[in-house]
Design a protein around this nucleic acid. Structure first.
Lengths: 145, 145
DNA sequence: GATTGACTTAAAGTCCACTTTAAGTTGTAA
DNA sequence: TTACAACTTAAAGTGGACTTTAAGTCAATC
């Protein structure tokens, strides 16, 4: 029995598959300072389960609209220790506020799209006698603009 | 009293302001076939209230993720008459399906972001003794990954 | 021991949706 | 009538986030 548990390690190709990114994208992220890869003696990158968790979290942040440079700022602060928690918190709160605003906007776009789809369906079914303009239809639904 | 109501008409600059786009963007959209501008005798574009409605609708579609070329396809079918309603309906339904999927994904990203913000707040308040890893915190909330 | 596939780097290329530039024309106000 | 803002065109430039290319190294299999 080994006294210590051996952490699995992954080549860049394996790692890329695990986080559903391409190997060049991983290298690009590393070049941007979003992650750090360890190296084998002959210079090849390898990654651990902790890296997988980190990248997955990064992708969540990215998914809420943070740019690479926002993420880089976050990472920089993170590396500086707990003293920068207020900075990180402020950055995430701003991201959250911006994203929530956009989220409400696209929700409205989706409502209009859905209205239009239903309007076409009614039109196809001959229920509007093919005549009611979409604007009138929207107004009837209370979805102006 | 005039016998007919005169439709207001807008120069490209006025029109751009009304729909919150730039004049070059309006020209670009026209060049892509997304809208048609009428011209004065000396070649200047002018627009009407119908154009405003159309652009606003276009922007809703765009807001749900339709690309310029998707929109162009839609416009082309629209110009061909009611025979293409099934085509347009299918395009909008696909847009809706794709968008709904993305919408759910970003919703999840937002949840993780919110969890992280709350985790930082607790950490700042000294409530986790500065020790509970974020992964554990997530797990407690049932928000894995 | 030769081939194959995965890795290494730096740099150039791609895509989309605009935006900016350049060079010129036109309409209105002082 | 001269200034100036707003318009016209075609073409080139921008930004972000990768992706692709080129040229080479390394490890494992036949």
């Amino acid at each position: 029995m080994p006294a210590i548990k051996i952490e699995p390690s992954y080549s860049i190709g394996e790692f890329a598959d695990l986080v559903h990114l391409s190997a060049p994208t991983i290298r690009y992220y590393e070049s941007q300072g979003l992650l750090k890869a360890r190296r084998t003696t002959n210079g090849r990158r390898y990654f651990t389960t902790a890296d997988i968790k980190w990248v997955k979290f990064l992708l969540h942040l990215k998914g809420t609209g943070m740019s690479i440079s926002d993420l880089k700022q976050y990472v920089t602060w993170r590396a500086m220790g707990d003293g920068t928690i207020p900075n990180r918190l402020a950055l995430l709160e701003k991201t959250q506020a911006d994203f929530t605003k956009k989220y409400r906007e696209v929700q409205h776009h989706l409502e209009i799209l859905t209205d239009k789809i239903n309007w076409y369906r009614q039109k196809e079914a001959g229920k509007t006698a093919g005549r009611e303009p979409f604007a009138d239809y929207l107004e009837k639904l209370g979805h102006e603009e």
